[in-house]
């Protein structure tokens, strides 16, 4: 399958096959207005299959939450048709408003206008804790 190369924008490569749609939602991309290509189950020499996202004319996106979903993905920044920067995603230290704390005793269950913040506890186990109640989760 052919998708044209982009002149300016971002190419997120090596996304775990089948998770591309979820990755788009984590990125907060507005599919009504942004120019986006999602390629699913593309051939990959490393992993067999992979998903790829191409976003045109948009360089400023929040990659922290994408690291949660797939810390093996790479992000390529393209300007004037040239690769100008390549970033390997990592688990973010702090995650804001991606998921809600499920502890019914947590203050986030009652306090209005509060951010749901999770802090990385251990990169090995990929465990996070709620900043308020310490409840742990894996994303």
């Amino acid at each position: 399958m052919e998708v044209n190369e982009i002149e300016n924008g971002i190419v997120i490569d090596h996304i775990k096959a089948g998770t591309g749609l979820k990755a788009l939602s984590y990125l907060g991309i507005d599919t009504r207005t942004d120019t986006v290509a999602l390629i699913m189950n593309a051939q990959s020499s490393k992993h067999g299959r992979k998903d790829i996202i191409k976003i045109e004319n948009l360089l400023d996106i929040d990659l922290a939450s994408l690291g949660l979903l797939d810390c093996g993905a790479t992000v390529n920044y393209i300007e004037g048709g040239e690769l100008v920067k390549k970033v390997k995603l990592a688990l973010p230290e702090r995650v804001t408003d991606v998921i809600k704390c499920k502890n019914p005793r947590c203050v986030t269950s009652v306090e209005p206008a509060i951010q749901h913040v999770f802090l990385l506890v251990d990169p090995e186990t990929e465990e996070y804790r709620c900043e308020y109640c310490d409840e742990t989760v894996r994303f």
Partner: peptide, 10 residues
């Protein structure tokens, strides 16, 4: 003092 966990941080 508040019954919800993390209320003091708020």
């Amino acid at each position: 003092r508040h019954p919800k966990e993390g209320s003091c941080r708020v």
